[in-house]
Amino acid sequence: MVPPHCTCLLGPGYALLRPEFAVAGQALRRGKGPVRRILLFMGGMDQDNATSTALRGLRDIAKAGVAIDVVLGAGAPHRDQVRALCENTPNARLHVQVDNMAELMASADLAIGACGSATWERCFLGLPTIAIVLADNQRRSAHDLAAAGYIVNLGDVATVTPEMVAQAATALMVDDAGRLALSSRTLGLARRVPATVADLIYQEAL
């Protein structure tokens, strides 16, 4: 599909990430230790309200003192419900239409999210992730990444329950070695290209 002289930049090592991720990655320090902060981001719109499902599953974890950063877009249809849940969940904070996603990912110890474009942002920052499939075009990547040991895949949003989220999150929280292994694998997956090259690709795309 391309001429012989074309250079193909393929795979997650060439993911088009904003420069802020390269900056956050330079100061990143991941290692063993307790989970103190969880990032919950199911995409800007989250039509299926997976955010509420996951947040209910994290309620007891939040009560135990773990901070929960919840991110939604300004136009999310279930934003008011999510806001109410955050207000009634200790240590949960709602962020709307953020411009510091790299900072939130870098400060988190664990993420719960969709398997869309944010997947490669989390991989670049080595953030262990529990994924929920929100759309058909996420199903294959979620399956393949889980099979290769890069993420934990809970499957389709229609079948995910708060109890499933709680069980998966608790299992990773008590498994320091497993969590560190996920982080190390994803860092290797998405950092095969120097950040400066990724920045050049991004600028060229603009």
Rank of each mutant, 00 (worst) to 15 (best):
M105N: 04
M105L: 13
A106D: 06
A106K: 00
S107Q: 15
A108P: 05
A108I: 08
D109P: 03
D109K: 01
L110P: 01
L110K: 01
L110Q: 03
A111P: 01
A111S: 11
A111G: 04
I112F: 10
I112M: 12
G113R: 00
A114D: 07
S117R: 09
C123Q: 09
F124K: 07
L127A: 03
P128N: 09
I130Q: 01
A131H: 03
A131W: 03
I132S: 00
I132T: 00
L134R: 00
A135D: 06
A135H: 03
D136V: 11
N137V: 10
N137A: 10
R139I: 04
R139A: 15
R139Q: 10
R140H: 13
R140V: 13
S141F: 06
H143D: 13
H143Q: 13
H143W: 10
H143I: 04
D144K: 08
A146K: 04
A146Q: 05
G149T: 05
Y150V: 02
Y150I: 00
I151T: 04
I151Q: 00
V152M: 08
V152I: 14
N153G: 05
N153L: 08
G155F: 11
G155Q: 08
G155S: 13
T159M: 13
T161L: 08
T161I: 12
P162T: 09
P162I: 07
M164V: 12
V165T: 07
V165R: 01
V165P: 02
V165N: 02
A166L: 11
A166G: 09
Q167L: 14
A169S: 15
T170Q: 14
A171W: 08
A171R: 14
L172R: 02
V174R: 14
V174M: 12
V174W: 09
D175P: 06
D175L: 12
A177P: 00
A177C: 04
A177K: 04
R179T: 04
R179A: 07
R179D: 07
L180H: 05
A181R: 12
A181W: 06
R185N: 13
T186C: 14
G188W: 01
G188L: 02
A190R: 01
A190E: 08
R191W: 06
R191Q: 14
V193K: 01
